[in-house]
Design a binder for these strands. Structure first.
Lengths: 282, 282
DNA sequence: TTTTTTCTGAAATATTCTTTGCAAAGTTTC
DNA sequence: GAAACTTTGCAAAGAATATTTCAGAAAAAA
């Protein structure tokens, strides 16, 4: 039950001191959820014992239990995931799709907060000026590499998908220079080859753009540009929705950066398609 | 200064234990802001002493000081005034990311209305009982094929990725029967090979699950099961977020359908990984 | 290899937080 | 106005949390 409701119920049994405590708690529940009993007491101008006794009067075993309730409320209220889920999923338990949708929406909202357009502009500018864009990702990230490979090529970038095997990777890196850019993906299960690859990029003065989740800040050596935000979770595993949104935004930003090239390369694509009509579905 | 920034700065001095702690904290900062040192330690799987030492390494006098910083961040982030300010700031026209996020969210909400859990259950049951699952998609859909290929294999399904070229496709189809299932993707630019492929599936009595967007209902011959919802749009092109969410829900439903197989195949995967350790990143 | 340094966990210690018994002050009831 | 009851603050005991020290293990350097 919500703390506020609990208090309402017991309202008549509240002493003056209780009331002062309650007032402090309800005035700023978020901050209050962090306070210790003595902190509450100080703010309410009562003795800490009164705080403890109020908690007990409200049916808690002690003050920490009251605070835990407050914390739960804060979390369910603040966490976009929880909010959306409550709104969407009546019976989220057996409606898996609703649960996923809720999580994804929450994660996307977070994303809009964490990654700024400035960062995207900077990244797009790097890609735009690159002679070639090398793409690297392993595990599930290959799906994103695939996607970006297509999109970037359509925008007129010369791309190069780096393989995952050590030998081939090394071979591809030979012609790697400061005019190129490395666009890499790193998610929770960090690919083993990423570190040496970044190291190499540093040595070659190749700018690196890293798209990542919460492990982003831990990746070393540090990339030039880090675009990272926590991913949505579906059950046990994490989804690619958030990094994909970053990718999409990046491609759009790139297109805006240079209407000319993107458009003309699309036009040329049309022409070329005519000639190879046989290979690609329409 | 923000904790994440602080961590980024000190990154190079972080030990493995430090890193585990950092991961736990960054993965869910809101919840983490309530945790005690020993709670953090438990979640990160390290000793509490390591938590204290990390706090000190980051420049705090002790763990409580670190937590207080985290709490401050939560508060300033969550306070209504801040939220409003942020929402206004991002409403700016040139923030492409915000626009994309908005579109995606709208599309996801639609999805939750259009595809039912019953449909997912039916689809999952088909996949579960299949001898092999053949995957087909072209163009951007290959990213999803790639994704589903991995996920389904992890769940213990035998998969087969169908190639796009006419000859190879024909070759793969020879051993195609009624015990198999075809999982196909069809988006706005309908792949040219899809129609004959579906036709063939009908002749072979192979069940077909089609994941699609608005063109879904137009595809014929009609698939056994159609999971379709309009996709979000970013600028000119359409994104894969919605079909990807369908895929994720499908895999989750499949896992729930048979905890046994999914779990045991994951366990066997672990064992196998040990043997091939060299090939894959951790 | 050996030496040195760094890292980590266990245990001891210190600190902070919470609870409770008690007594004084204030209220209510008779 | 006195007895019974309630409320409150104080202080000390008790619990939890945080910090430090130390020793062994692991990694790096010699």
């Amino acid at each position: 039950m919500l703390l506020a409701q609990l208090i309402e119920q017991q309202q008549e049994r509240l002493t003056p001191a209780d009331e002062r405590v309650v007032r402090s708690l309800l005035a700023d529940p978020l901050a209050a959820s962090f306070w210790s009993a003595s902190e509450v007491a100080q703010r309410a101008g009562v003795h800490e014992a009164s705080v403890v006794r109020l908690a007990q009067k409200l049916g808690f075993r002690g003050y920490p239990e009251l605070r835990a309730t407050l914390q739960d409320e804060v979390i369910t209220e603040v966490k976009p995931a929880e909010r959306v889920r409550r709104r969407l999923a009546q019976a989220a338990d057996d409606n898996l799709l609703a649960g996923i949708v809720g999580d994804e929406i929450a994660a996307l909202q977070e994303l809009a907060r964490l990654v700024s357009q400035d960062q995207l502009d900077a990244a797009a500018r790097l890609l735009f000026n690159a002679r070639r864009v090398a793409l690297f990702g392993s595990g599930h990230a290959t799906a994103l590499v695939d996607l970006m490979d297509r999109r970037l090529r359509r925008s007129g970038c010369a791309t190069l998908v780096l393989p995952d095997s050590a030998r081939e990777l090394a071979e591809h890196l030979l012609a790697f220079g400061a005019e190129d850019v490395l666009l890499a993906f790193a998610f929770r299960s960090r690919p083993i080859r990423l570190e040496p690859l970044l190291q190499y990029a540093v040595e070659q003065h190749t700018p690196v753009v890293l798209i990542s989740d919460t492990i982003g800040p831990l990746v070393r050596p540090q990339p030039h540009l880090l675009l990272s935000a926590p991913r949505g979770t579906s059950g046990d595993y994490q989804t690619l929705t958030v990094p994909m949104a970053i990718c999409n935004a990046l491609v759009l930003t790139l297109a805006r950066l240079d209407n000319g090239r993107s458009l003309s390369s699309l036009r040329r694509l049309e022409t070329l398609l005519g000639r190879f009509r046989d290979n690609e579905g329409r």
